[in-house]
């Protein structure tokens, strides 16, 4: 074995090790570089991105009106059947029969957040909401009804 090579090997090795220790050591002595977020404590000021696909909601306006006409395109487009729409015939004042939703059922437990329902909805009735705290104690509670109690179709939205 070449004795000079042997010694330079040792020194090169030690220097490479010290370089690595410099990186970890520099982070150790700079505690302000910590990136951990303390989650439940920072809940109040936690801001999610507005586009975050947390869950699907049906926005209602102040008069408790939504835009869903019950056409069923979202149900058709959903790849795994997490949306189910129950409609009924609504007879308006002038005697015309019109379809309206009774229940817009959304099973978040099955949803894969592909976004096809939101994208294909002709009346833009659905949207994503950045809520992510979905943990519940029973599976039934993962089935949600998106239209609120007593809500009606917004005026001007044609089905």
């Amino acid at each position: 074995m070449n004795i000079i090579g042997y010694i330079t090997d040792i020194f090169k090795g030690v220097i490479s090790l010290l370089k690595g220790m410099k990186v970890t050591g520099s982070y150790f002595f700079r505690p302000w570089t910590v990136v951990t977020q303390k989650y439940p404590e920072n809940r109040k000021k936690l801001e999610m991105y507005e586009r975050m696909k947390g869950e699907i909601v049906m926005p209602h306006n102040a008069k408790n009106e939504h835009k869903c006409t019950g056409c069923g395109i979202c149900e058709l487009n959903c790849p795994n059947g997490s949306i189910e729409i129950i409609t009924f015939q609504l007879v308006s004042e002038d005697g015309k029969k019109k379809r309206a939703i009774d229940k817009h059922i959304y099973r978040i437990g099955m949803c894969t957040f592909c976004g096809l329902c939101v994208k294909t909805c002709p009346s833009k009735a659905l949207s994503f909401a950045p809520n992510f705290e979905h943990a519940v104690f029973s599976r039934e509670r993962l089935t949600k009804i998106l239209n609120k109690e007593g809500s009606v179709l917004e005026k001007g939205v044609e089905g």
């Binding site: 982070y27 570089t33 951990t36």
Partner: peptide
């Protein structure tokens, strides 16, 4: 705590 600080974490808290 030491390893957490080296890894940009807080560690037990």
């Amino acid at each position: 705590k030491v390893c957490a600080l080296m890894q940009n974490r807080i560690g037990p808290n």
